[in-house]
Design a protein around this nucleic acid. Structure first.
Lengths: 336, 336
DNA sequence: CTGAAAGCGCTAACAT
DNA sequence: ATGTTAGCGCTTTCAG
């Protein structure tokens, strides 16, 4: 590996000047800068992050914690984080907190404390009291997506508002008998998203003067299969049937659509269905949904971190940032 | 941050002994080891990877290169890699090679050369001549998933055999008019997977004495939507219709199933469909498929790397390792 | 604007 | 088995 000394020698300057010219810190004459850059390129020199980070305290690396990798939402957010960070020349170290509790503990008590990262982004992780403190104790910029967490800088989408919006769309189309798929107490981890989405649904209904029918509340596990089963329940059993279904995730909405088809219902003629998320499959199923732009969430978090890393220690924009969302009307909803 | 000196002082030994006791390298008396470990725990000491890696040359970190994060296959492989590596105490630095060519170039010429990683795993990346050389020039263990690449240690699944197996399953069920969805010349990046899968299909047919009908070869882009369109083509147009469809990916198979349903065909009564991959959605659609265990691929690659990293420089198991696959018969295939 | 030199926190000979 | 010590390859004062 070619080292800084060789570059210095070839450029005819000291290693200090090479360091300054390459990092952009401190003053270097244009002439020196040129010669150093040429020398570096000629030798194929790349600054050793080991040495650089030990000397400077900066690693040019951000740690990203995610609860799942193999689920669409998380990998899409990660994709956004990665794109924005790499563009800025940062590496990213990935911490996948799995079901394994030992791993989770180790990440907070050991992995993150190895001085390998300049900052941390936590994606949709419900942090325990201790974990939040451990994160703060790192003394690094931290941004959490999903929340809110009053102790951390957070980017959150207002789930109650999101599902209100989706429900109001159905209401606006003249639907009165609207069922809800989602709300599953046993599945209410991760910031109580299922609960919030049910609350927004109920609020929209109540505001419109419509009573919430318990029989129209079908719990499901946020998967296509779960949505399918719930759809079968809602549409297949005797008694009153809904004219529209609000599913608390796109995957459940897709499951419900498939269930409706299997039961001989046409969507949207016989049944309207709306979801939430902006899932990649939504387009294919022509699903009306509320997009929450997961890729953009990742990019935003990354930019926020980069900003805190560049600002020479200005007061961090600590607070609860609101994430955008948008109703996307496609083909699965129509007039009642 | 508590440093090694404080631990040494508290334990009443030198920093060298602390280092030895904590890393497990060199001889330390049981008594000293105990005292050091207690002191370290009491102070909450974690070895600084910056300092440690500069001094030792080891980073306890593996670089992983992936072409996409937001596609099921890649994120699932990554998930396997991550699980295995974290279990061994390794961090993973993620390099997402996107469509952006500048980023790709930067990864090979700069990011990977920062001395931040001990080894590299390349997931399903068709490496150029130069890139392969750059990887070798790092002087680190490298394992590539997908291939083969004669210059690197590689883990590959035999795509020709995989699709032969799937096709033979259809043949065994008595099907003679079998269509193929996949093979798309414009989409033939990434190790020519589309081409290999078509070859296996044709080989199985030929071996069974059946001529390949060009009209039964429908190109598609490996998405559900692409499979849907291809299915519509195959089943909707005038002329002879297949009794079975071999789709070169599960997502296309699912699209084809949906197309068949829309056209009024029952699966598997009127039409058998088989896919390839072992996609998470396969279960829901009761899809018969050839599973290639992506999570296992990631774990294997990680284990291979760990092995090379631990073996004190034994001859690396350089070679072309074969990855397992398995026919999973579910409900979308039946007798002709 | 530039160079000399003192570390950054740890590991690995080399002694003992 | 343990301590001493010389770096690892950079960055950053501090002088000039």
């Amino acid at each position: 590996m070619v080292s800084i000394d060789e570059v210095a020698r070839l450029a005819g300057v000291s290693t200090a000047t090479v360091s300054r010219a390459l990092s952009g810190r401190g003053q270097v004459s244009e002439a020196s800068r040129q010669r150093v850059q040429q020398a570096a390129k000629a030798l194929g020199y790349v600054v050793s992050s080991r040495a650089s980070s030990l000397a400077s305290g900066r690693t040019k690396n951000v740690g990203v914690i995610v609860p799942f990798l193999d689920r669409w939402f998380f990998s899409t957010v990660l994709s956004g984080v990665s794109a924005a960070l790499m563009r800025a020349g940062y590496d990213i170290t990935l911490y996948n907190i799995t079901a394994d509790d030992a791993v989770r503990t180790a990440v907070f008590s050991t992995f993150l404390r190895r001085q390998r990262v300049d900052a941390v982004i936590a994606v949709a992780i419900e942090l325990g009291e201790t974990e939040t403190e451990q994160l703060q104790a790192l003394g690094l910029p931290v941004v959490a997506i999903g929340g809110p967490n009053p102790k951390l800088d957070t980017l959150t989408v207002d789930d109650v508002a999101v599902s209100q919006l989706a429900t109001q769309h159905l209401l606006g189309l003249g639907h009165r008998d609207i069922a809800h798929i989602g709300a599953n107490p046993e599945f209410d981890l991760d910031f109580h998203i299922p609960t919030h989405r049910r609350q927004g649904f109920e609020k929209a209904l109540t505001d419109a003067g419509i009573a919430v029918k318990p029989a129209f509340l079908e719990p499901a596990d946020f998967t296509i299969e779960g949505g399918y089963r719930a759809g079968k329940q809602l549409l297949g059993r005797p008694g009153p049937r809904p004219t529209a279904i609000f599913a608390a995730s796109d995957e459940m909405a897709i499951g419900a659509i498939l269930a409706a088809r299997d039961l001989g219902f046409r969507v949207p003629e016989d049944l309207s269905v709306v979801g939430i998320d902006g899932h990649e499959l939504g387009e294919f199923f022509r699903l009306t949904t509320v997009d929450q732009f997961p890729m953009g969430q990742g990019e935003r978090a990354a930019e926020r971190i980069l900003q805190q890393l560049s600002e020479g220690g200005e007061e961090p924009p600590h607070g609860q940032g609101a994430l955008p969302f948008e109703l996307v009307v496609r083909g699965t909803t129509a007039r009642a």
